[in-house]
Amino acid sequence: MSSTLTGRAEVADGYRAGRTLPIRVELVRQLKRRRTLVMGGILFALPFVLLIAFQVGGAPDSRNGGTGLMDTATLSGANFAAVNLFASAGFLLVVPVALFCGDTVASEASWSSLRYLLAAPVPRARLLWSKLVVGLSLSLAAMILLPVVALAVGTAAYGWGPLELPTGSSLAAGTAAQRLVITVAYIFVSQLVTAALAFWLSTRTDAPLGAVGGAVGLTIIGNVLDEVTALGDWREFLPSHWQYAWLDAVRPQLDWTDMIQGTSLSITYAMVLFALAFRGFARKDVVS
């Protein structure tokens, strides 16, 4: 019986929708792009920049009689790695997430290659899935690269030792390494909102800069709103309100309370935005 009589569309022999645009191929494409190399170079260089700053300016000192995490930067490699995360979590690590997730679809549209990918034919959901997985993978790699390089640089400069806490206590080197892993994992999860926002904007515009800049800009607005104490408890609905909850991981007693709240809020917002991206792109008239 012909495919016309059975109501099934004819497809080429050997064609499998799930095998189009393999994640491995997309990953190699994105790794070769200049923006990936530049961003990796910036994150790789940051620990060296901070090291030079401490060498030139001397060891950080406490202000107003208090002691913060930044004041412990030169006490050990673990402290140096923690300070690098503290210094970059608020903004610098937002940029690669917005870049890798916001540039991915919009760049194809700006190159007028998006319609040719879909004509390959690559199913729209498959295309978005491949690009999303690669974008999130590169974002996670960026967040891992920074503390790994910082730990190596800090250990070479200040030695391998316990994580000295601002409270005067310390965490053994093995425990400190585990806490840094928890810290990186939480920062990644907390940035899922930025990733989802950038990805959604990337499916709505043909301008990569608009998607990346929009995600970064809205993240900054969220940070500003979190500083408005007049909002009271409403700030708890802002993902930025929980972005430093990972500091509970560098305390003598690990406290999961705030990190659980931040994780649940971030994942909820991210799932909604990812769903909007897939739903909107499935109905979009792609002409680029």
Rank of each mutant, 00 (worst) to 15 (best):
E10P: 12
D13I: 10
A17I: 06
P22Y: 08
R24V: 03
V28K: 11
K32F: 13
T36K: 01
T36A: 08
I42K: 13
L46F: 10
L46H: 04
P47I: 04
V49W: 01
L50H: 11
L51A: 02
G58R: 06
P60I: 10
S62W: 15
T67N: 11
T72S: 12
A73V: 03
A73H: 03
S76C: 00
A78P: 05
N79K: 07
A81P: 01
A87D: 15
S88E: 08
S88F: 08
G90A: 10
V94F: 02
A109P: 13
L114Q: 02
L117N: 05
L127C: 09
W129C: 12
S130A: 14
G135H: 04
L136H: 09
A141V: 01
A142K: 00
P147V: 01
A157V: 05
Y158W: 06
S170N: 08
L180H: 04
I187F: 10
I187N: 10
V189P: 11
L192A: 02
V193T: 07
A196G: 07
L197C: 12
L201W: 06
S202A: 10
T203W: 01
T203R: 04
T205L: 06
D206G: 13
P208T: 10
V212D: 07
A215T: 00
G217K: 09
I220V: 15
G222M: 07
L225K: 03
T229W: 11
A230T: 12
L231D: 02
L238G: 07
L238M: 02
Q243I: 15
L247D: 05
Q253E: 15
L254T: 04
D255F: 10
T257R: 13
T257M: 06
T263N: 06
Y269F: 10
F274E: 06
A277E: 03
A277Q: 04
G280N: 10
R283S: 08
